[in-house]
């Protein structure tokens, strides 16, 4: 997981570097459009184009039959059933391209989110540092210690909860890229914090679960770590007029790549 994140991050840090973090709108338009084109090419290559065309044609035939023979109840039912049957075949033709595309598309989307969804914290901001312990580690929340660098102050906490969480309230006193150090017995883990300065990749979550794949901004936690996750929530970056934040970028990515693919399908000779 960590290797995968490191590799994909390295690639996209280079790919996105020419345009920097400030021109978010450029990357957020360019990459979904390229993803739509890429998806078309993949679709053309791996899908059964003849089968898809045939399925679409049969669906249309049976829908027409429903309209034309609307006085014949049995005929309408039969045509509806056949249209549905061909619909299932049409969807089946899409499974392979979907499986081929799902990983690269998700990676691209996650990287766009990591690069553009959040803004660095501001000097004076107060945020919660939320640490969840792996219940199987047997480590008590009381054993967790936090060291903060100069520039970050512990404002309140820790509050240790019965379900194995430890929460601090931190105050950002200076601008900079900081590292928090958490220890639990012999284990020590770091958590990065971005405060002030220009737009950049903002670390949000370290986790040892699958969630780490969604937050490639920092290394995943080791599988044997007593820590399950370490989080400092970040604010959404304003990328208006485009929609911002995790949800906004995900929706924008899907919408733009779909529209691009649909508009360019004839130019690339693809039957969708």
């Amino acid at each position: 997981m960590d290797l995968f994140n490191a590799l994909t991050s390295a690639v996209f840090d280079v790919l996105l570097a020419p345009f920097g973090y400030r021109l978010a709108w450029f990357d957020l338009v360019l990459w979904p459009v390229l993803a739509g084109i890429g998806a078309l090419l993949v679709y053309k290559k791996v899908s059964n184009q003849a089968g898809i065309a045939a399925a679409k044609q049969r669906i249309m035939v049976h829908i027409l039959a429903v309209v034309i023979y609307r006085d014949d109840i049995l005929g309408v039912l039969r045509s509806t059933a056949r249209a549905l049957g061909w619909n299932v075949r049409y969807l089946a033709h899409n499974v392979v391209p979907l499986l081929v595309m799902i990983v690269p598309m998700t990676v691209l989307m996650v990287q766009l989110v990591a690069h553009f969804a959040y803004r660095p914290l501001e000097k004076g901001d107060v945020r919660l540092l939320e640490v969840a312990l792996d219940p199987e580690s047997g480590v008590s929340p009381k054993a967790v210690q936090l060291q903060v660098p100069q520039g970050v102050a512990v404002d309140a906490g820790p509050v240790r909860t019965p379900d194995g969480q430890v929460v601090w309230r931190l105050k950002m006193q200076d601008e900079g890229d900081f590292t928090l150090r958490l220890t639990a017995g012999d284990e020590a883990q770091n958590k990065a914090l971005a405060v002030g300065g220009g737009p950049r990749k903002v670390p949000v979550l370290r986790s040892k679960t699958w969630e780490a794949l969604l937050y490639p901004g920092e290394a995943a936690l080791p599988r044997k770590s007593a820590f399950e996750s370490i989080r400092v929530a970040a604010d959404e970056r304003d990328v208006s007029p485009l929609p911002g934040g995790e949800g906004g970028i995900v929706l924008w990515f899907f919408g733009t790549s779909l529209v691009a693919g649909f508009l360019l399908r004839n130019r690339f000779g693809v039957t969708l």
Partner: peptide, 20 residues
């Protein structure tokens, strides 16, 4: 959520949290 040793409380409501 009340810390066992400290007179501080973690409020959880509406999907958000506040430490007071």
């Amino acid at each position: 959520r009340i810390d066992p040793d400290r007179d501080e409380v973690l409020v959880e409501a509406g999907g958000g949290r506040a430490l007071l």
